[in-house]
Computed example of a mutant assay.
Amino acid sequence: MMNSDEVLDLYDIAVLLNYERNTTEPRLRHTKLREVAFPGTQSKTVALSSPIDQGWNNNASTWIVLDQQQTSDPDAPDLPTEFLPANKRQDSALSNEQLETLFHQARNHDGCYQAISLLQIFFALFSEDTKLRVRHAPNGKQPGMSYTTTVSRRVIVEESFRDPKFTTAICVLPQGAMFVSGHQPQLLHAVVGFSPLDSDTVQSFFDLSSMQFGDIGRGPGPKGKQLFALDTPEEFALRFSMLAKGTDPSKSNRTLAISGTPVDDWLWEVAMRTKKRWMNRATEKWCGHCGAPGAKSKCAGCGEAYYCGKDHQKLAWGFHKGYCGKP
């Protein structure tokens, strides 16, 4: 464990955790996008008589059809830029941002408890009094609500969302494995809440699996373009008003920890890689948007943030502009 002088930054840690988890996610490892059917269109690959006839909600449905493929390097990370097969990239109508959304939407599918277990494992690598800096979306070019707390001042916030407005269906070929969420009357979801040192009231709602909801899951704040959500209480309520018609208060719950998941051995590996990269941050830079290592494009304003290139710098700017050059 690290000593209590260490200060973790929740935003930076989230960027790294997202990269290390989603690029090695075992369930959909080395799959390629065959087809996507956005709401209002029909899948050409997967035929159903009618989702409504099967008892699904009559809401906006997105179908993501994937092909399981062999790879010459099974240890190589999966990347959004390689989500399409090479022979389809040039003629694809999907933008890089859309591909990124679909990649993370699939790999975060129904992943809230997995994400919470990962965060528990990562924080267990540090002492309970390790300081944690929490930074929210900026107000224009000024920093948003920010405070320093400790990694132990957290709680798991569980909600049951009534009448989801979106269904995501993922089909993996050739085995025909199907993963579906949002098709039932209620959708269980959990996030991690943080509170300042001088208050027991949750001021920050952190959702490392928010991209399972597509672009609505981007954050921090309602206008963020990052690959996770970090919301104030007001932003949290707004985000989920876009996802469902309401909540079931009788099923709301707050706990201090979960018992773990069947993939915790893999999550330990993710946490250890993330810790190593965090500890080497002075010499080994990563992209401030996607978390990829080896970022070379440096922010001209502060000289401290790095990116894969202009596209990722632009996506990260909505958050970074409030903290560029500011302590």
Rank of each mutant, 00 (worst) to 15 (best):
C290T: 09
P327R: 15
L48S: 08
A106L: 02
S127T: 05
A229G: 01
S50G: 07
C171W: 02
D129T: 06
N3V: 02
N18C: 01
L94V: 02
S210P: 11
F236E: 06
P51N: 07
V202M: 07
A316H: 13
T283I: 05
Q70W: 14
L230C: 05
G246W: 06
W63Q: 12
K298I: 07
R218Q: 13
N87A: 13
L230R: 11
E304A: 12
R239N: 04
K298P: 05
A47W: 12
M242K: 11
A237W: 02
L79A: 05
G325W: 15
Y306T: 02
D53T: 06
S117A: 12
T150D: 01
S181E: 07
D75Y: 15
H183Q: 11
T232K: 15
R277Y: 14
L48G: 01
A47T: 09
W56E: 01
L227D: 02
P262A: 03
A292T: 07
I121D: 08
R254M: 11
S4F: 04
N22C: 09
L28T: 07
D163F: 12
P174G: 02
Q184C: 01
V151Y: 03
Y19D: 08
K275D: 07
L84I: 03
R239T: 00
V180H: 04
S95H: 11
L79T: 08
G219Y: 13
L227G: 08
